[in-house]
Design a protein around this nucleic acid. Structure first.
Lengths: 221, 221, 221, 221
DNA sequence: CATGAATGAGTCTTCATTCAT
DNA sequence: TATGAATGAAGACTCATTCAT
C-alpha cells in the first residue's frame, strides 16, 4: 500500500513538474516574442494549452512567472562565468577567458528566448523589478572587475578606471548577443567560436597590455 | 487685413509650437521617470497642466508622442556623430574620434531624460516600434562600421569581423552611458573628459593596430 | 467672458452632481434588491445606463459607493433621532419620544431601499466594514441608553441593565422596520402612525415605570 | 458473509457520518468567523483537513453545507421554544416563559458559532436563501403570536397589533443575543439568568397587562 | 472512498481615446 | 482652441465545481 502510495505520489509530483515546465515554456516563448507588457496571460494560456485557473495554480501572478524565467537565466549565466584560476597548473588566463566567453555564447544561444527576454526587457517594469536586473548586471560587472584587478596585479591588464571599463566589456557582450539572437541578424552564419573569438579579441585588446598584432587570441595562445 | 491675418496666424502658430513643447517636455520628464508603460496620459497631463482633449489636439496618441521624443534624440545624436575626415589638413583620426566621443558624452549627459528613455525603453512596445529602434541603432552601427572600414584601409584598424565589432563598440557606449546617467552610478565624480577618454581608450585598443602601452590615447595623440 | 465661464462651470458642476446621483440611485436600487455581494458593477451600470469607465469616474470602487450609500443613511437617521428635552417649556417626554419614533418610521419608509440595505446587509463584508456598522448601531444604542438614564433620574424608567435593554429597544425597531419595508409584509395596510404608536407602546411599557393599562401612549398623553 | 457485510456496512456508515461531522464542524467554525461570502471552500478544507474532492462527496455545494448548518440551528431552536401550557397543573405562564427564554439563551450561547451565523448572515445570499431565513423567523414570530393570543384570551396580554409586536419581541431577542455572542460585548460578565430575566422583563412589561413595579418577573413569580 | 489537479465563467478595475460644449 | 466627462475594450485574477486516478 505504502509502495503504491509512494509511486502515485511520485508520479503526481512528476506531473506537477511537467505541467510547470509546460507553462514556463509557453511563457518563455510568449515573453520573448511580445515582451512583458504586450504578453497577456491569455497568450500564455493559449500557447500552453492550459486553462486560466491552471496557470494560477502554478504561478501566483504574471510577474511571478516572469521573475521565475529571469531567475532561470541568472543561474545559468552564473554557472557559466567562472573565476580565472591562477594556480600553478592553471591554463593561461587568456585561454581561460576564451573558454568562458565561448561557453557563455553557447549558453546564451542555447537559451535564445530567455536571453532575449533578459537583454531586451532590460528595464521598465517597476522600480522593484529594475533593481533585480540592475543587481544582476552589477554582479556580472563586479566579476569582470575582479578579473581585471587580478589581471592588473599580474601585469596583464593596463591601468584604467576598472569599474567603468568593466561596464564597457559587459555592454559589448550584451549588445552583440542581443543582435546575434534577434530574428534576422547580419552574422547569421558565424559559428559560435568565431563570435567568441571576435568578442574576446575586441575586449582583450582593450584591457590587455601587450602588442596588438591583429591576430585573434586563439592563434596567439 | 491680410497683414493682421498674417500676424494673427503667426502668433497662433507660435502658440501652437509652445503648447507642443510644453506637452513634450512634460512627457519627456514623465517617461524618463516612469518608463513608457507605467506612464499614463494622465501623468503627462498633470505634469503639463493641460487638459485631456488638448493633448490629443497635438498628438494623436501616447505612442506618437513617445516616438516624437525618440526622434528628437535620434537627430541630436546624428548631429553629433560625424564622419572621420581624411583630407590633407584634417586632424589625426584619433583626435577626431576623441572629439566625437567627447561630444557624444556631452550631448547624452545634456539630455539625461531622453537618453535614459532611449537606452532603457530599448524595446518591448510592439514589433513596429522595435523596428524603429533597431533601425536607429543599425544606423549608428553602420556609421561605426564605415569608420572602421576606413580605418582598415588606412592600416589603423586591425582586421576583424567589422559588423560584429561595430556592435561591440556601440554596446560598450550604451552600457556606460546608461549607468552614467542612472540615479546613483559609481563614477559620480568622473568628469566627462575622463569618461570619454576611457571609453575611447577601451575601444581603440580593441580596433586599433598598434602598441598598446597602457597610455590613454589623449596622451598618445 | 468670465460670466460665460462661470455659467459653464456651474452647469458642469451641476451635471456632475446629477450623474453622481444617477449612479448612486442605480446602486441603491441594485444593492437593496440583490445585496452587496450578489450585486455586480455591471448590474449597477445597466441600471444606471452608464458606461463602465463612467462609474469609476465617480466612485473608486464598488465598496466605496456602498459605503457612500450607508453614510447617506447614517446621516439621515442621525438627523431624525433627537435628544429628549427636559427644559421648562418642553413637551412631555413621552410626546417627544412619539415624535421621534414617528419621524424615524417616516424617514425609514421614505428611504426604503437604503434602509433595507442598512438593515439586511448587517454584516459580513469584511472586518473593517463590520466595524463601521457596529459603530453606527453602537451610537444609536448609546443614544437610547442616554435617554434611559435620563428617564431613570426622572423616575420614569424602571431600574434595569440599561445597556442591555437599550439593545432590546434597538432590536425591536430594526426587526419591525425590516419586515415593514420588505416586499410582502403582513402589515401592508398599517399607517405609519399606528406602527409608531405600537412600537412606542411596546417599548415604553418595557422601560416605563407606571401602570400599564393597555392604552396606547398617544391616548395617555 | 451477510453478517460481515452488515458489519462492514455499519462501520462504513459510521465513518461517513463522522466525516460529515468533521466537515460540518470545520464549516461552522469558518463561516462564523469569516461569514458566508468571505469563507472559501479552501478555508473549510484546511480547517477540516480534508481534500477538495472529499468535500463534494458529502455536500453538493458551498451553499448546501451552509443551509445544513442553518437547519441544525433551526431544529435546535425549535426544540427550545415550547408552547405555553394552560392545563390545570401547569406552572404559571410567566414562569413558563422565563423557562423558555432562559433555555433559549442557554442554547444560543452553547452554539455560539451557529447562532452568530444565523443572526449575522441574516440575508443577502440570494432570493431563495432569504426566503428560507424569512420562513424560519416567520415560524418563530408565529409562535410568539400564538402565545400572545393565548395571553390575550387569558387577560394577561394587553390588546395590540399582535403580529407587529411579536416581531418586536423577536427583534429584541435577536439583537441582544448577537451582541452577547459577539467578540467583545459590554455585558461580558452577566450570567445567563440575569440576561434572560432582563429580556423577559423588558418584553413582559411590553405585552403584559398589569402593574409594572420595576421588579424582574422572577421575583414577581 | 479519497484525492487534488484542472477548469473557466465571472469579477473588479484601468486607461487610451473620443466628442459635445 | 481648450476642456474634461464619457466610453468600452482589455487585462489580471478568484474560486466553486468537476473528474481522472
Amino acid at each position: 500500500m505504502t509502495d503504491d502510495d509512494d509511486k502515485r505520489k511520485a508520479r503526481a509530483t512528476q506531473r506537477r513538474i511537467e505541467r510547470r515546465s509546460q507553462i514556463l515554456d509557453a511563457a518563455r516563448k510568449v515573453f520573448s516574442v511580445k515582451g512583458y507588457h504586450a504578453a497577456s496571460i491569455t497568450d500564455i494560456l493559449e500557447e500552453a494549452g492550459v486553462a486560466r485557473g491552471t496557470f494560477y495554480l502554478y504561478f501566483p501572478s504574471k510577474r511571478a512567472i516572469f521573475e521565475d524565467l529571469l531567475e532561470q537565466m541568472f543561474s545559468q549565466i552564473k554557472g557559466t562565468v567562472r573565476r580565472i584560476q591562477t594556480g600553478a597548473g592553471a591554463a593561461p588566463p587568456v585561454e581561460q577567458l576564451y573558454g568562458t566567453v565561448s561557453q557563455l555564447v553557447e549558453v546564451l544561444e542555447g537559451n535564445r528566448e530567455l536571453t532575449i527576454i533578459l537583454l531586451r526587457e532590460a528595464v521598465g517594469l517597476d522600480a522593484d523589478f529594475d533593481q533585480k536586473l540592475n543587481a544582476f548586471y552589477l554582479r556580472l560587472a563586479t566579476m569582470i572587475e575582479a578579473a581585471m584587478h587580478l589581471g592588473q596585479t599580474m601585469g596583464l591588464v593596463r591601468p584604467c578606471e576598472v569599474s567603468l571599463v568593466a561596464r564597457c566589456v559587459l555592454g559589448s557582450v550584451k549588445e552583440v548577443m542581443l543582435r546575434l539572437l534577434s530574428a534576422d541578424h547580419p552574422w547569421a552564419g558565424l559559428p559560435r567560436e568565431k563570435v567568441a573569438r571576435e568578442i574576446l579579441a575586441y575586449n582583450l585588446h582593450g584591457i590587455f597590455v601587450g602588442i596588438a598584432d591583429g591576430t585573434p587570441p586563439s592563434d596567439a595562445a
